[in-house]
């Protein structure tokens, strides 16, 4: 029923999109030939001062860049990984001198904390968790939630870090009977955590008590949907999903993001906005990031597309630069910048 009731975002032609919505302001050159896997902007504390830094991850090295001025960056720390390759960066909100990384080949095998102890300023990494890790997310109040295993053997754990990132406390959440695919914190409802499952369900936990509050099956059209953002307003839950497996149709074009509204009391849901590719733009969703009301996606064509979820349409298209397809896109957690990465490890910073 969701597709019939979904409002389709406008499909403007590619030519009508204003590329001026994105202004290049800086570039981080990767001197190594290692393949780029993730990028993130985090607050980092150095000598008692919090700075907006950029973390860039290649398969075998993670680098921390600090700003010299508004356009120049300096690499200040590197962490090396010789045994297991880096898969993704996992920022932990409210911690200022720690970032986590997930390591593995196809699936996550380890989660490590990366630190720079202030006494000797040398890089340090600490193994936090190992095993068959399915999903991981940093959440507010210096917490890291992760799920390991599948179905009945699933364990969902929250670690809480001390302010300096050193010690930690551990707590378990009640597992659902379906394998968790992604986690998302629910903005607007403190202590609510949302998860999507491989069986097209959305689950909600109470982070404080560990209770599993609700499991809600959503339309089968949302298969393998990843949740990029969730917020609660006026008693309803708004969820932004992406659709790596969505099929192109004549009526809806090629869907990339969908805004779904759920009543958590009744488990009823309805799709309210479908973000499709502009007319004439080919490709499907590869990966993306949503912050506030803006959603960015890398398409299989190598182009980055941006949607404004309030306006309901695509606002910018960024084609590959220097014939290099885009492979990473992230909204900065410290300002309104967009971080765009290429496979060769070069990171471009745009103002949106």
């Amino acid at each position: 029923h969701s597709t019939e009731q979904t409002e389709i975002a406008d499909l403007p032609a590619c030519e009508s999109l204003n590329p001026g919505n994105l202004q290049l302001i800086s570039e981080l050159k990767n001197p190594s030939s290692s393949c780029s896997v993730d990028v993130s902007a985090v607050w980092w504390e150095r000598a008692g001062t919090k700075e907006p830094c950029i973390i860039a991850a290649c398969e075998d090295v993670v680098s921390l860049w600090k700003p010299l001025n508004s356009v120049q960056w300096e690499k200040v720390h590197t962490w090396h990984f010789t045994e297991v390759p880096v898969l993704q960066i996992v920022p932990v909100p409210d911690v200022y001198n720690l970032v986590c990384v997930a390591l593995g080949s196809l699936e996550i095998r380890e989660i490590r904390a990366l630190l720079c102890p202030s006494d000797n300023e040398s890089e340090k990494q600490v193994l936090l968790k190992s095993g068959d890790i399915k999903a991981v997310l940093g959440v507010t109040k210096r917490r890291l939630v992760s799920s390991t295993g599948t179905f009945c053997n699933q364990q969902i754990q929250i670690m809480t870090f001390a302010e300096d990132g050193s010690s930690k406390d551990e707590q378990l959440l009640m597992p659902p009977d379906e394998t968790i695919l992604t986690f998302a914190e629910v903005q607007g409802t403190q202590e609510a955590l949302l998860g999507t499952t491989t069986m097209n369900s959305i689950v909600i936990w109470n982070l404080k008590t560990g209770q599993l509050l609700k499991k809600m099956h959503i339309d089968d059209a949302y298969q393998a949907a990843m949740c990029h953002r969730a917020y609660s307003e006026m008693g309803l839950l708004f969820v932004v999903l992406s659709h790596p497996c969505a099929r192109e149709s004549q009526a809806f074009g090629s869907p990339v993001f969908q805004l779904l509204v759920i009543n958590p009391k009744t488990a009823q849901s309805v799709g309210v906005l479908l973000c499709s590719l502009p007319q004439g733009q080919a490709g499907r969703f590869l990966e993306g990031d949503v912050k506030d009301h803006v959603a960015a996606a890398i398409l299989t064509s190598g182009t980055i597309a941006i949607w404004d979820l309030l306006l309901g349409h695509c606002t910018a298209l960024l084609p590959p630069v220097s014939d290099q397809s885009w492979s990473l896109v992230k909204w900065s957690g410290t300002d309104s910048h967009l971080l765009a990465g290429q496979k060769d490890g070069n990171i471009f910073i745009y103002r949106y």
Binding site: T209, L213, G235
Partner: peptide, 23 residues
């Protein structure tokens, strides 16, 4: 679309579900 399709809405859904769910 109408939120009437979603059934009765509660502003305190999180607290209510927390009191109903098993500990």
């Amino acid at each position: 679309c109408s939120t009437a399709d979603l059934g009765p809405i509660s502003l305190n859904w999180f607290e209510e579900l927390s009191s109903e769910a098993p500990p």
